[in-house]
């Protein structure tokens, strides 16, 4: 009887003061951390380190799940360096990792890979964006642990 009264009292007191914790129907989906909006053409010194993709848009997104690039500057005077990349590619018989490496150069905001491909590259803090025919990949700098 006493416990029941306590519960009744608790319900009466708290019912009006505890706010509902229902997830809004518009907020049910998981949203990624918003990428920066103040992109600027990347400078060579910003292309140094390990970058992992956070979002991939465009046609390439249907085939690429994750992309990693590791850039190393090889000259402090010229915007050039070496790179190594890896991506998990889907759409074939089974997902496959692809790796590649080579040299890069930066000219007028365009990153040229030694195999002839390239992309416009933008940076914002520790974020990097590569835009090419077929898609746009947004990377964030990662630490090698």
């Amino acid at each position: 009887m006493v416990a029941s009264s306590k519960c009744l009292l608790l319900a009466g007191l708290c019912g009006g003061c505890i706010a509902p914790s229902v997830v809004d129907s518009a907020g049910r989906a998981v949203e990624l951390a918003p990428a920066p909006t103040n992109w600027a053409p990347a400078r060579a010194e910003q292309l140094d380190g390990l970058f992992e993709s956070l979002s991939i848009e465009g046609e390439a997104a249907a085939s690429l799940w994750r992309v990693h690039y590791h850039f190393v500057r090889t000259s402090t005077e010229a915007p050039v360096g070496t790179y190594s990349g890896a991506a998990l590619v889907i759409g074939g018989a089974s997902p496959q990792f692809q790796t590649l490496s080579g040299e890069w150069s930066l000219s007028n905001g365009r990153l040229e890979f030694s195999d002839g491909s390239g992309a416009q590259v933008f940076a914002s803090g520790e974020w990097l964006k590569l835009a090419s025919d077929g898609g746009v990949v947004v990377f964030r700098k990662a630490a090698i642990q």
């Binding site: 690429l64 990349g85 590619v89 759409g91 692809q98």
Partner: peptide, 29 residues
Amino acid sequence: RSFLSFSLPSQKFSFQGRQRLAVVPSLSR
């Protein structure tokens, strides 16, 4: 196709046609 030097499968995403979809847990609730 090729994108950022990676060689991609020939088929692109197509809304039409029977396909397999896999739920992405990190983006699903």
